[in-house]
């Protein structure tokens, strides 16, 4: 490699090593520290006094995670909420992606832009928009009472339902885009051949289109599932006090309890849980890149 190429590679590489990889190692280190009332509020792991190196590994942060039901429940319910919301996203997003891929070419780009556009406006404000709709005297309740479908306003805000709705709403574009990218590359002659051989359109869809689009489904699902597990804003604004999500617990541990080592342990366990989905996502990304390079 010439020095020019070295420079081009090394600049972003070093940046990522320092500001992306190194932080994780430090989180792991501090998750074994003790909480102190000091600045910064955690103990040193290694001490070097009188030629003796002492290393203190404090496992209590992890034991706490195991012993307090709050955290176990938090992890489980985060995984559950993220998985169900990803499933709903797929059911809503797939038909939309499919319909866009079938539009004439010039309107495809406009439709695609309309899908992306909301995610270019503020995430926070889009979640906030649902508060006004879901409140007890909000627009949805007012409309339903007005038409006479219900007599009493429904409790919609600060419920698990609102959290699911918020995740599906906020992450839907991330499901639609990769599925669309996959569908638009399909060779339509396959479907014509299937029709010639007597397959019904529905049969051809389930035998040909759906299996071919598995790559897009996996990418979209990972793009929704992984960030949704650690989501903070949605459960904080739309969820109730009983909607436990691990991102919110980590936030409270850090900002309210000021327990930095505890928050680090929460983060490390979350990362371990997410390693498998992140690896799947990365494999898929790498394969996509290779295919694009060859094609």
């Amino acid at each position: 490699m010439g020095w020019g190429r070295r420079l081009v590679t090394a600049t972003p590489y070093l940046w990522l090593l320092l500001f992306f990889l190194a932080p994780f190692i430090i989180v792991i280190k501090i998750s074994f520290a003790e909480t102190l009332i000091a600045q910064p509020p955690f103990s040193d792991l290694a001490q070097y006094v009188d030629d003796v190196l002492t290393i203190n590994l404090n496992l209590f942060n992890y034991i706490d995670l195991y012993e307090y039901d709050l955290y176990l429940t938090g992890y489980l319910s985060s995984l559950k909420i993220a998985a169900i919301a990803t499933g709903i996203c797929l059911l809503v997003g797939y038909p939309v992606a499919y319909a866009i891929s079938r539009l004439p070419e010039h309107s495809r780009n406009l439709a695609l832009m309309l899908v992306i556009l909301p995610s270019w406006t503020s995430f926070l404000i889009r979640i906030y928009a649902w508060i006004g709709l879901l409140k007890e005297n909000g627009l949805i309740n007012n409309a339903l009472v007005g038409i006479g479908i219900i007599d009493e306003p429904l409790v919609l805000l600060h419920t698990p339902f609102a959290v699911y709705l918020g995740i599906v709403y906020a992450y839907l574009p991330f499901m639609i885009l990769p599925i669309y990218t996959n569908l638009v590359k399909h060779d339509h002659r396959l479907l014509e051949a299937a029709a010639d051989l007597g397959a019904s359109p529905v049969g051809a869809f389930f035998k040909i289109t759906l299996p071919l689009s598995v790559g897009g489904i996996i990418a979209g699902s990972m793009l929704v599932f992984i960030p949704a597990v650690g989501e903070f804003v949605i459960p904080e604004l739309l969820g109730g006090p009983d909607t436990l999500m691990i991102g919110k617990l980590l936030w409270n541990e850090f900002f309210n309890a000021r327990n930095w080592p505890g928050a680090s342990a929460v983060a490390v366990v979350m990362l371990v849980l997410l390693i498998v989905p992140i690896t799947i996502f990365q494999r898929y990304q790498a394969r996509e890149m290779e295919e694009a390079q060859r094609g």
Partner: peptide, 20 residues
């Protein structure tokens, strides 16, 4: 390292950078 930030939960990125 180039693809992980696309999906990494924000609370993890935020906490780890602060500790760095």
């Amino acid at each position: 390292m180039m693809t992980a930030p696309l999906v990494m939960p924000e609370v993890i990125t935020g906490l780890s950078l602060l500790l760095l």
